[in-house]
Design a protein around this nucleic acid. Structure first.
Length: 484
RNA sequence: GACCCCAUCGUCUAGCCAGGUCCAGGACACCGGCCUUUCACGCCGGCAACACGGGUUCAAAUCCCGUUGGGGUCGCCA
């Protein structure tokens, strides 16, 4: 019934490629393929301090690994480029001026201090709705022009109507009505000249001819802002479709504290891309014949966006693992071998392990035994290892806390994962946390390998990779918590 | 707190839009059995849900309202 749909996945390259990105990408991909349209990859790197190219590269790799190939994107180009928002600054600037002319946006000169104080005050007095108070909206236009010309730092805000309500339509939920008074004057253009999501997303979706905006549920509350922008520009709205959020077992939105969320981890741990995709599709989609196992191709054949269910699905690693096992068992020995050799048993990987192991092993037959922890997913800690997980003069809970800080403050944000960068990060962390390398490094070694005698720590961590290190650190932390 | 979204087995879901065929079907997990030198796979069987209260109707898991519960948003992050 629908014509060719142009859909997009628009990830922000600010961290490890996320399983939620794959989930949303899958349904965007399915609709585009089902309707004979296009699926576009757009990089939303307008947060200049957090965006990084390592993260962008990992997004490309992860989506390619999954086989969600895009028709237009930063790497392959296309008729509506550039597909990297940081390269579209001029476009946003022009559009924002248009909005100012039309009275739909205005410059705001409020300082961060004033904004912080305002927020603080609103929180303290438990104001009914939080948000910008419209202070700069009353500045006379001539004065605003003069101050901008004088180079006074400012942002551009959306002039949201204060009365009435916005009625927006969601494909799955129908009409959504939100009082305009609930919506504050969002920043559209930051003081560094880069747009925020709200502006960039509306402008790009329009310019790129996106027909269906399929994204996560967390965007529903900013729908009025987006609707207002389409209206102010005089553009027709795309179809909006908000997918439910993937959840942790406790039903909160999926997070790395409670679930593996990096696509790199699934790849490294030996999940097959077709199994992951199949499982992700099960989160909201059911085949007409209710079968659990199907390919993306089979999904596309019968796909219907409107049949997605809305309850926030709990991501169940156990069921994914079962599904993955089914896929694995269906592989012939030859295919199985190639999968192994694309992954943990690739020549490249084994070649990285050899230099770390060769001095420590005298017979090839002893290689696997010594190097076993390079080839397994988890780590288990025997009695001796458990003891060495504890830092000198600390209790197990204290040690758990220290390792957790290391993981969350230092290792998680580390995008470049090499022996050098890991060493630098670890040493810097010691400095910051007031710990000596000597007291911290042994527990870390045991946490990531399960053993006290290993090749040099940084090289070992580099070869193991971030994903394995982080999951083992997490299980070490859990182990320590259980020791009390 | 305000606003918005959601609500079928512990979990993923079918059924709901077009009310009766649903004392609710499938899958994961769990339990039992079969197969088997072991384990696993596989097969068979079992346990287990329409959140609650009103209303509409001859009839409600399905429609309406309320309550409760869960989630999201309230950033010069996306």
């Amino acid at each position: 019934m629908t014509g060719p749909a142009r859909t997009r996945i628009a990830p922000s390259p600010t961290g490890d490629p996320h399983v939620g990105t794959a989930y949303v990408a899958l349904f965007n991909y399915a609709l585009a393929r089902k309707t004979g349209g296009q699926f576009i990859l757009r990089i939303e790197d307008t947060d200049r301090v957090r965006s990084n190219t390592a993260s962008e590269r990992m997004i490309f790799e992860a989506l390619s690994w999954l086989g969600l190939d895009w028709d237009e994107g930063p790497d392959v180009g296309g008729p509506h480029g550039p597909y990297r928002q940081s390269e579209r600054q001029e476009i946003y600037r022009e559009h924002v001026e248009l909005l100012i002319e039309r009275g739909a946006a205005y410059p705001c000169f409020c300082t961060r201090e004033r904004l912080d104080a305002l927020r603080e005050e609103q929180r303290r007095t438990k104001a009914a709705h939080l948000g910008y108070d419209g202070h700069c909206r009353s500045i006379p236009p001539e004065e605003a022009v003069r101050r901008r010309a004088a180079g006074e730092p400012h942002v551009i805000r959306l002039a949201m109507p204060r009365e009435g309500e916005s009625v927006v339509h969601d494909l799955l939920r129908g009409e959504i009505r939100i009082a305009n008074a609930q919506v504050d004057d969002q920043v559209l253009l930051k003081s560094d000249g880069h747009p925020t999501y709200h502006l960039a997303n509306v402008v790009d979706d329009h310019l790129m001819g996106i027909t269906h905006v399929i994204r996560a549920e967390e965007w529903i509350s900013s729908l009025p802002k987006h609707a207002r922008l389409y209206e102010a520009f005089g553009w027709e709205q795309p179809v909006f479709c908000h997918l439910p959020l993937l959840r942790n077992a406790d039903r909160s939105k999926i997070s790395k504290r409670k679930n593996p969320v990096s696509l790199n981890w699934y790849r490294r741990a030996g999940y097959l891309p077709e199994a992951l995709l199949n499982y992700l599709a099960l989160m909201g989609w059911a085949m007409p014949d209710e079968r659990d196992e199907f390919s993306v191709g089979e999904l596309i054949e019968v796909f219907d966006l409107e049949k997605i269910s809305l309850g926030g699905p709990v991501f169940d690693l156990e069921k994914l693992t079962w599904l993955n096992g089914r896929y694995l068992r269906n592989l012939g020995t030859g295919d199985y071998l190639s999968r192994l050799r694309e992954g943990v048993l690739s020549d490249a990987y084994v070649a990285e392990v050899i230099p770390l192991v060769r001095d420590r092993v005298d017979r090839l037959g002893d290689f696997m035994e010594y190097a076993a922890f390079f080839f397994t997913n988890g780590a288990d800690y025997d009695e001796a290892a458990r003891k060495r997980l504890v830092l000198k003069d600390r209790t197990p809970p204290q040690s758990a806390k220290i390792l957790r800080k290391l993981l969350e403050d230092t290792l998680d944000p580390l995008m470049e994962w090499t022996a050098k960068s890991v060493e630098a990060a670890l040493r810097a962390h010691c400095e910051k946390a007031g710990l000596s390398p000597k007291e911290l490094f042994m527990p870390v070694r045991v946490a990531v390998t399960g053993r006290a005698a290993t090749p040099p720590l940084f090289e070992t961590m580099a070869v193991l990779g971030k994903e394995i290190c982080r999951t083992r650190l997490r299980s070490a932390i859990e182990t320590l918590r259980g020791m009390k």
